[in-house]
Amino acid sequence: MKSLLLIPVIATMLVGGVYLMADDDHYEKGNIKQRAAQLPVSPQQQSYIKECSSCHMAYQAEFLPKRTWAKMMNGLDDHFGVDASLTAKDEKILFDYLQKNAADSKRVGKHFAKMAASAGDTSLRISDTRYFKKEHRKIPQKYIDQKEVKSIANCNACHQKAESGDYRERGISIPNYGRWDD
């Protein structure tokens, strides 16, 4: 019986696991990713993905700490200069989803954790975190400015599997450049 009770716990950990962009070698072991991919996406996560990805990739909640998401969700009517407001009911669903899945709410992969831990208190942008900047510092500006990429915030322009939370180097292909080896 006790082991039965553990199933939801393990399932939750696995769902988290799909978003862990854990280090490359770690990632290869076992088929955690495969199993996690079979778990259904919760209705809350579905809402989150649907609403955010109307305009941009739905960045994984694990990228930022709770306080940053809270601030972001409290200003959706001026979301980086754009009106991204929702009904109060939908904003609450997304707010709760983000609080529950933020980097400081559960165990997350070490790269997510570093990103969130290096988030400042003023900027809401993932691309303004110290760790993000460090990881992207060698990318020539011309590859970011080109029309296929447009912005450093456009993760999946280069990280081909970004939408599934996989940011490993092997998944990188920069338009008009190709594979990126650091």
């Binding site: 990805s53 109307s54 305009c55 941009h56 990739m57 200069g81 990429v149 912005s151 456009n154 322009a157």
Partner: peptide
């Protein structure tokens, strides 16, 4: 309007 568009700011 019958063709696809692109978000002016994000490119989506």
């Amino acid at each position: 309007l019958a063709s696809k568009g692109e978000n002016y700011f994000t490119g989506k």
